[in-house]
Design a binder for these strands. Structure first.
Length: 364
RNA sequence: GGAGAGUUGGCUGAGCGGUCAAAAGCAGCAGACUGUAAAUCUGCCGGGCCACGCCCUACGGAGGUUCGAAUCCUCCACUCUCCA
């Protein structure tokens, strides 16, 4: 899921967003036929953010204008983060209580109060397809006891979030930091919660990629994912690099969201089938090759590395546009290739090939 | 012809006796970014080393004063402004 925090995937129009990716399937897996020539590329779902939309333009306005889909001209699915991540990222300007969280707007300092019920209501009123439970995302490095306390609060909030579910689907979120015992307890609690006879529509692993070492993150993911119910989507929140996606799928994850492809694109860091490219590097100044010869996105089939470097070096808006188109296309193509590999029962060899290619030198 | 101001590292531009290899910005070079307070942030940026310290060359040029000069004095070169 590309991240479109404020009902916008940064630097792209909604139309550009819908036409991302390649019909061409990269990485040598084009045989399974899952994607046909005329199938619509581009993401089937994006992520928006409750906290940010609540501040601007405000729920009332989004609802009055017909919901987020109509607001941004997007006819595919939308999932919203509940605002839980902002308890982490905006830790300096919020205060957590049992009832909910008091935020001071990062824009003008005005106070907002967000509770599990309010968060679910706001997400529902905006008309999203999937809402997320309101959770606390604790920082890395705090004690086992503090993580446990935070997790138990998330559990109580999960119950209240679920009770507030109406028309939007609702995903629960497992917490527990890097502590495997807590992760297990959290799965047991979140997976068993029910309201009106049904549980969460999907379950997410939250609270990772908050500063912990990569091996600790995967220890958590590899340990926790198999514990999640197999009949509901498993969503790894906030992850990650292309390698992380492949390894996450290997662990059993179905869904991801991450700002990395969009933010890194704006910062000139581009993902390719042979590893990362810093497009501002001097060595690309006269490089007339496509960014990634194995990619058939608009960027790679239209302009050269030299041009991309020129745009970036001169702060041209088009640099962000081209770079974002490529990075998101790369991610979407990667996920498409993963789906095909799974369908053709060749995921493990696909994974090995993909990971070894990333660390290899570019052939040319 | 006369009066005044100025010349600092790739550029703009501080500094006006030691704490100056010289502020700051830009440019340049490299890196980071993981449920977005990010078109952001960080590091390097005269040269050379057996580099958390030392050596060399440096503030238009040449001399001088001083323990010590980018900073003071003299001459020269060039640039700009104003008056004829």
């Amino acid at each position: 899921m590309p991240v479109g925090t404020r009902a916008s995937v940064k630097s792209l129009t909604t139309d550009q967003l819908k036409r991302l990716g390649s019909n061409h399937v990269p990485l040598g897996t084009q045989d399974s036929g899952l994607r046909t020539e005329d199938s619509a590329p581009g993401p089937q779902i994006i992520l928006n953010n409750t906290y940010h939309l609540m501040l601007r333009p405000g729920v009332d306005l989004v609802e009055q204008l017909g919901g987020v889909h109509k607001f941004m001209g997007w006819d595919r699915a939308v999932l919203t983060d509940s605002g839980g991540f902002q308890l982490f990222s905006l830790a300096a300007i919020r205060k957590i209580r049992e009832e909910g969280v008091e935020f001071r707007s990062h824009i003008d300092g005005s106070p907002y109060f967000l509770t599990p019920e309010l968060s679910v209501q706001i997400q529902t009123r905006m008309g999203v397809d999937i809402a997320m439970a309101f959770d606390e995302c604790p920082a890395y490095g705090i004690s086992h006891a503090e993580v446990e306390k935070s997790m138990l609060l998330t559990h109580r909030w999960a119950k209240r979030s679920l009770a507030a579910r109406t028309t939007s689907a609702l995903f629960g979120i497992v917490q527990g930091g890097v502590h495997l015992d807590l992760r297990k307890r959290s799965v047991e609690e979140i997976a068993s919660l029910e309201a009106d006879g049904s549980g969460f529509d999907g379950i997410a692993i939250g609270g990772v990629s908050v500063g912990e070492p990569k091996d600790e993150m995967f220890e958590v993911v590899n340990h926790t994912t198999p514990l999640l119910p197999a009949d509901r989507p498993r969503y790894l929140m906030g992850v990650g690099t292309p390698e992380d996606l492949v390894n996450g799928v290997a662990a059993g994850i179905d869904m991801f969201d991450c700002v990395m492809p969009t933010r890194n694109a704006r910062n000139g860091s581009l993902f390719t089938s042979f590893g990362k490219i810093h497009i501002k590097n001097a060595k690309y100044a006269a490089d007339d090759r496509p960014l990634d010869p194995n990619c058939s996105c608009v960027t790679c089939t239209t302009v050269s590395r030299a041009y991309l470097r020129h745009l970036y070096a001169n702060d041209e808006i088009a640099a962000s546009v081209y770079n974002t188109i490529h990075n998101l296309s790369f991610y979407l193509d990667l996920m498409g290739a993963i789906r095909q590999a799974i369908a053709s029962n060749s995921f493990h060899s696909f994974r090995e090939g993909f990971l070894s290619r990333l660390s290899s030198e570019e052939s040319s």
